[in-house]
Design a protein around this nucleic acid. Sequence first.
RNA 1: GCCACCGUAGCUCAGAGGUAGAGCACCUGCAUGGUAAGCAGGUGGUCAUGGGUUCGAUUCCCAUCGGUGGCUCCA
Length: 637
Amino acid sequence: MIGLVKITLPDGSIKEFPRGTTVLEVAQSIGSRLAKAALAGRVNGHYVDLNYRLEGDAKLAIITFADQAGKDILRHSAAHVMAEAVQRVFPEAKLAIGPAIADGFYYDFEIDGTFSPEDLERIEAEMKKIIAADLPFERLVVDRDKNRQLFAKKGEKYKVELLDELDALAPVTNYRHGDFVDLCAGPHVPSTGRIKAFKLLSVAGAYWRGSEKNRMLQRIYGTAFEKQTDLDAYLERLEEAKRRDHRRLGKELDLFSIQEEGPGFPFFHPKGMVLRNILEDFWRAVHRKWGYQEVRTPIILHEDLWKQSGHWDHYQENMYFTKIDDEGYAIKPMNCPGGILLYKRKLHSYRDLPLRVAELGLVHRHELSGTLHGLMRVRCFTQDDAHLFLLPTQVKDEVIGVLELAEYLYGVFGFDYHVELSTKPEKALGSDADWERAIDNLRSALEEKGLPYQVNEGDGAFYGPKIDFHLKDALGRTWQCGTIQLDFQMPERFDLTYVGEDGGKHRPVMLHRTIFGSLERFIAILVEHYAGAFPAWLAPVQAKVMTISDRQVPYAKQVFAELHAAEVRVAADLRPEKIGYKIRSAQLEQVPYMLVIGDAEVEKGLVAVRHRRQGDLGQMSLADFQARLKEEVHKRE
RNA sequence: GCCACCGUAGCUCAGAGGUAGAGCACCUGCAUGGUAAGCAGGUGGUCAUGGGUUCGAUUCCCAUCGGUGGCUCCA
């Protein structure tokens, strides 16, 4: 029927409206509360403004702040408001880009000098004025050439550059609120007044287009919410994340430290070493079960090896070098060349493959000083590496095997992760055809496992493409941990062979992989994941014996000795302090169990058990306590 | 490496152009107390390092080193 359009809503219902009805009007017809909450619409998968007119049959969703898209739209609108505020305070500031990001937004500016914290306050004050004025956001379809002239006249060189790169066929749009116009695809919230709660968070330098060859711009980060209470909750969440920060907990729990004398070279304290050794023992047991052998290769090897491997040409700026008897040596940044020398020590039959060789290998890499970050990013770390030497026909199954091993190991710790597939970088060894073949191998393994993944173009290692596992820290930043790298290059460069069924020499395929990634980074993630309260199987101290008064010290020593002999990680607090004081201090150390001993326990030959979360569990025999702990450790809870 | 900010006791932080303070921790004494801080006293700092300005700097300026948040990079 002419004059009416059929609109399909997300619940599947279909309603008819006069042609030209706006998204907002549809929202109003559904309900006044929805109309009030509406920020934008999604029409046939495209996001549009609320005043978008529906000219044909369409699928429509009303977008509110509850949707991620709604958050993005509100925050992107806040970025526009901030850009105007910046130009009011700094008329000479040039605009670059200002997108919404995970929990907020940023905008990049070119200015002479930098923004100070006081500048941020002035900018916030201007933003409040713009928001109070409740200026409507207006979408303007403009002529490409005229628009180019407009921005060129204003000296907005970054906008001109962006404009020149837009799809030549797509319409060009600007968005305006008040006197401020920005090149933008939109959509936006209806008016500036919708940005009820916002805060500017920090200033940082950022290269134009992310390339260090370009000029460094000034980036202001901020965030915006629909309600002040949500903003407050978000800021509180940031504070909570700071309390979980592994650098803070590492210090408080006395796990590790980084000293001025060794930037990026961590020290592990006794308690940190307990944790680390448990992880290594566990890792070894799992790898034995999964058919791996273990080796160890030297940290320093002759530079000729690194020339042959390609690291000399492709990785030199990350490597440390030394001289021994006037010969040049390198400190290994990766374990593979050493592993390859071991492979070459003897002939291999096709019957021996797949060969899975693991190594907890200490590598040193010169990372840029500005990137160092607690245990997450260091300059020496132990990779839980392994090299798999394979028949070409074994590649997919072995990749799947590693994917399953990763799934199992991360599952033990309850980690969430996402997977990325990285393709050929600019600096790469080997032909495009080899790379295509390698990428296909990885992709088909991922698809056979049904693992969702995103593609990271150009981010592979120089010798091959890779699958990466990314885990989240307390602040939601992701860190690459596990990696699976397919390598057709090293076997070629080192002339690796196996003897085939036909008695001839053939080329194996090599798979490099880690699961933890590095012990250091993995421990950092663990600390943040558990907020320092390690489950009993990982806790550096599992139980702490504490006395009510000095009378119980001899008995407490017996309890301690018995647990110690049973290989429980036990400590004792026999100080002449009140029990509340000792408990508090054990709680702060996140010790899972406190064994309180007073006269009553001595008399009956029991211990009073307190759990760090469940509190007082009452008296029990030491044997019962041990059984309980053993069970908990066994289940890895 | 680049941009911004920061660097005072073991930790968390105050402070001021005239050569330093709190709380916790640690030590000592009193108290022997039953499930998250008992009381009192005490030890402890070349105020990151090196220059400069100044009669005088830890405080102001510069540089270096280290840290934090980003950018680039990466396990």
